[in-house]
Design a protein around this nucleic acid. Structure first.
Length: 294
DNA sequence: GCGTCCAGGTCTACC
DNA sequence: GGTAGACCTGGACGC
């Protein structure tokens, strides 16, 4: 069966699907040419389901392999809306970008929706797995988690593991199977805290704390430093942070600083004119060339 | 084949 | 509050 989800007028499926590396990490898969996103979704009280997502200017289409009841169908719709940021109101952001000729392309292209996972727990684990390593190692670690601990859907693909599934494994599993190295104890501790209810990471999505305070709370998780916390803040819809990492610094140097390394303060100054939207303006600016002719 | 460097950083000890 | 050094892994690179 197919679920059709209407999208905002400024939505760009291609820009969203390729907004950052997340769709390249399991249990997401993205087809390099058609940009079809395949994703395994965990359903509470039934077998996980593999959905295939495509998009146009008017709607997102979700192909589901079997007939679903209304409750399940609603759950899938909710997850897809969440992942593709369909409920994000970017009108203020686009208005701010139109005031700067070099950034006008952003509202024109409909850029700025950063793909996220169905749960912030998944985003948090994946973010820890991106730190201090190559992208290929990040993929290897995430693949290890999904292959070993994910629930299987009918087509053999697997979900991202739940906190409980991860908490049940010993630290040695994260060292030997996931190849997480020094991150192993961080992942184990995080899963235990979330599974026990001691830490409510999903609550960060709707937290009313000021960004500075929320960032402090995020950094209480072992393995989460400035970059990781600020990356997560973007995924909960807060863009008054930059999330500078080595790739952003190198890209800024190449595209905005004549090839010379720029101090973080200079990068911050450059985007400060965008105030509460500076993090999103930076990310769109750095990734503009990921897509041509959109 | 081997050693070194470093990648989508963070933690701890120390000042 | 700021900083140096350690930390897992694995691919790229130079020799």
């Amino acid at each position: 069966m197919e679920i059709r989800i209407p999208v905002p007028r400024d939505f760009n499926y291609k820009r969203t699907a390729l907004s950052h590396g997340w769709t390249d990490l399991p249990p997401f898969e993205i087809h390099p040419e058609t940009l079809t996103i395949t994703r395994v979704l965990d359903l509470d009280d039934t077998l996980p389901v593999t959905v295939v997502i495509t998009g146009t200017k008017r709607a997102v289409h979700v192909e589901v392999p079997r007939k679903m009841g209304k409750r399940t169908s609603d759950s899938i719709t909710r997850d897809v809306r969440h992942m593709l940021r369909l409920d994000d109101d970017l009108s203020e952001f686009y208005s701010a970008m139109r005031a700067h000729p070099e950034f006008e392309w952003i509202p024109t292209a409909g850029a700025g929706r950063l793909v996220r996972s169905p749960t912030l727990f998944e985003d948090l684990v994946k973010t820890i797995c991106t730190t201090n390593c190559s992208w290929s190692l990040t993929k290897k670690m995430v693949q290890g988690l999904v292959n070993n601990l994910g629930r299987e859907s009918a087509d053999g693909r697997r979900t991202f593991p739940t906190p409980a599934a991860m908490a049940a494994m010993p630290t040695s599993f994260y060292v030997d199977e996931v190849r997480a190295g020094y991150r192993a104890s961080y992942l184990k501790e995080l899963a235990e805290r979330v599974a026990s209810g001691a830490l409510d990471v999903e609550g960060w999505l709707t937290s009313e704390l000021p960004t500075v305070e929320l960032k402090k709370e995020m950094k209480r998780v072992k393995g989460v430093g400035d970059y990781a916390a600020e990356n997560l803040l973007k995924l909960v819809g807060r863009y008054d942070v930059l999330a500078l990492d080595s790739w952003v610094r190198a890209t800024f140097a190449r595209t905005r600083n004549k090839g010379r390394t720029a101090p973080d303060a200079k990068i911050a100054r450059y985007y400060s004119r965008f105030n509460s939207w500076r993090g999103l303006a930076l990310w769109c600016d750095m990734t503009r060339n990921w897509i041509e002719n959109d």
